[in-house]
């Protein structure tokens, strides 16, 4: 039946929205299924145009059974289109959500190499799943979706740069900051980090620091540091 493949796509997408949280990666872009849906739709289109040419204008307006036939094919093609667009828009929504959750750090989202090294030195369960997913996200997106992510990132950076001195849109809002400085403990080796004022600090696992919140906000979101 026409539309069965599209239904498969939508049900798998629906199931994944029920079970994934923003910490886990998006499921892999279902390229073969999408190509076969596109093929089916193109075939339907060709069948409609050839039938219309074959029968001519007069019989199109009078032969109701022919019209019914063509209507069914047209509806199936439209249905396929709707399912494809809904699948794509759900994934795009998921990408945007993950971007905001990571505090707008594109490198973290796309880095495949940091995930494998971080896994070994890392005891905390939450952090290990985050670092695994950082690598997997890149593999699970299609090239167009990666382009979208980069473009969206650039758009947001452009947008917030106008008022960055007053407000940083991508900083977290979980808890309003109660003071300027914050105590942090290092969870993962982050190596040498250059702070805002030009200071260099070596972040080794287990060390504690007292720093300006603005310096460490990003690292807390990415899981390298933990607030104490």
């Amino acid at each position: 039946m026409y539309g069965d493949l599209a239904l498969q796509l939508v049900t798998s997408s629906h199931r994944s929205t029920l079970s994934t949280t923003p910490q886990l990666p998006l499921p892999k872009y279902a390229l073969p299924l999408i190509l076969s849906i596109c093929l089916e739709t193109r075939q339907l289109g060709q069948s409609i145009t050839s039938a219309a040419e074959q029968h001519g204008q007069v019989s199109l307006s009078q032969d109701r059974s022919l019209v019914c036939n063509l209507t069914v094919q047209h509806l199936s093609a439209r249905r396929n289109k709707r399912c494809l667009l809904a699948y794509l828009s759900t994934r795009v929504g998921g990408i945007k959500e993950r971007w905001w959750d990571s505090g707008g750090s594109l490198a973290y989202l796309l880095s495949p190499s940091s995930s494998s090294t971080m896994n070994n030195s890392d005891p905390s369960a939450i952090n290990s799943s985050e670092s695994e997913s950082a690598g997997d996200l890149r593999n699970n997106l299609s090239p167009q979706e990666l382009d979208f992510l980069r473009g969206y990132n650039n758009l947001m950076i452009d947008y917030k740069s106008d008022f960055l001195d007053v407000l940083d849109l991508t900083s977290s809002i979980d808890r309003p900051p109660s003071e300027l400085m914050v105590d942090v403990r290092v969870l993962k080796d982050a190596g040498e980090v250059v702070l805002e004022g030009g200071e260099k600090l070596d972040f080794r696992k287990g060390e504690r620091f007292r720093l300006n919140r603005s310096n460490v906000e990003r690292l807390i979101v990415q899981g390298y540091l933990e607030e104490v």
């Binding site: 629906h14 929205t17 709707r82 399912c83």
Partner: peptide, 12 residues
């Protein structure tokens, strides 16, 4: 919504 997955599944 046109894009709503729930709506697509229900109409099926």
């Amino acid at each position: 919504d046109y894009y709503s997955l729930n709506s697509i599944l229900a109409e099926n």
